[in-house]
Nucleic acid binder design. Structure first.
Lengths: 179, 179
DNA sequence: GTGTCGAATGTTAGTGACTAACATTCAAGT
DNA sequence: ACTTGAATGTTAGTCACTAACATTCGACAC
């Protein structure tokens, strides 16, 4: 709902009650909860998570889990049209400014993580490694999103590339830990 | 509080009200909230996050963000005594069984992520990359914890090693995305 | 001992997200 | 007109959490 985003931007998420959003949309509080299971989902629901799942699924099975996910993510991202990106940015700014929303956004990510890693596992990947890889990539994505939303003159794919670049680094080989 | 963990294990987290926990401890609901800011923190608060921050800080600056975090994590983990590990396991099982707690656990991780990446940045790391690296490692840690808590005959460091192994893989070099 | 102070705890009343049970409207199809 | 079913409204409640204020109680000065 556009009403909700407007209100969140003006007054902040915590200062906007569900009753406020419902009133702005000309309905009652109950009606709101029939459309959205929770207050945060009115902000967080979008079609891009599903697109990411599909993009990863359509990548060749031969790719390592980490890189298959990375490549799928890049594909999915480049398919989002400009107006969508602009909305994501406004949304992400609200999320960045609201601690409780940050963890709600992570709950969203978990659903995506489940779906993507299920796919990798069905294709023969090791369950733990697949999950870890997807979780790591999504964590980097979130970091990139938050960074990008806070800066003015950076585009999303540039921020994402920088965040993902940490996976390309060679370890500085040394005997290191006690475990 | 031990009372809380017991109740969560028996009845489940959502089915246990703060009033229940307070009653089990022989105090009033208000008193509970004077000790813990939220219901989830009674389960999630522990000293290990701070230990991780210190362990990473004490690693040589020369290490790449990703590997410095990984090595610090391994050190911090090997310093936890057995009884602590057993508690973590019980706790993690409750978290694994409770969706809302999973995102609460992530809010915990965010505080750790902030502290660790602040350290890396203070030591001259690139802010975006440092954050992404720490976020990725913590995501892998969470995945390992959840996996380990659900299996019977695996120890934590083995699960963690498997989860972290995804960072060691070489990318399958190919021209891949449209981004 | 009496008085005093401060910390820990209790009481009451409220807000806001969310749920359940039930009633109403209203547009379509017969 | 009659029925049906989906969308919406009403009411009343639960639960996490907060604010304002009152009470208990042990430590310590005197």
């Amino acid at each position: 709902m556009m009403h909700a985003l407007d209100l969140f931007e003006r007054r902040g998420y915590e200062q906007t009650s569900v009753a406020d959003i419902a009133a702005a949309a000309g309905v009652t509080e109950m009606t709101f909860f029939r459309h959205f299971p929770t207050k945060d989902r009115v902000l967080l629901d979008d079609p891009y998570d599903a697109a990411l799942v599909e993009a990863v699924a359509s990548r060749p099975q031969a790719e390592q889990p980490l890189f298959r996910t990375v490549n799928g993510l890049r594909e999915a991202l480049s398919a989002i049209p400009e107006p969508g990106i602009a909305l994501v940015r406004r949304r992400t700014r609200v999320v960045a400014a609201t601690p409780s929303l940050r963890s709600a956004a992570w709950r969203n990510n978990q659903r995506t993580e489940d779906a993507v890693s299920e796919q990798l596992i069905a294709d023969g990947g090791d369950p733990l490694e697949a999950r870890a890889a997807v979780a790591a990539v999504l964590a980097a994505l979130t970091t990139a999103l938050l960074w990008w939303a806070g800066e003015e003159d950076i585009d999303l794919s540039a921020a994402l590339n920088r965040a993902l670049s940490v996976f390309d680094r060679e370890p500085d080989r040394e005997q290191s830990h006690a475990g």
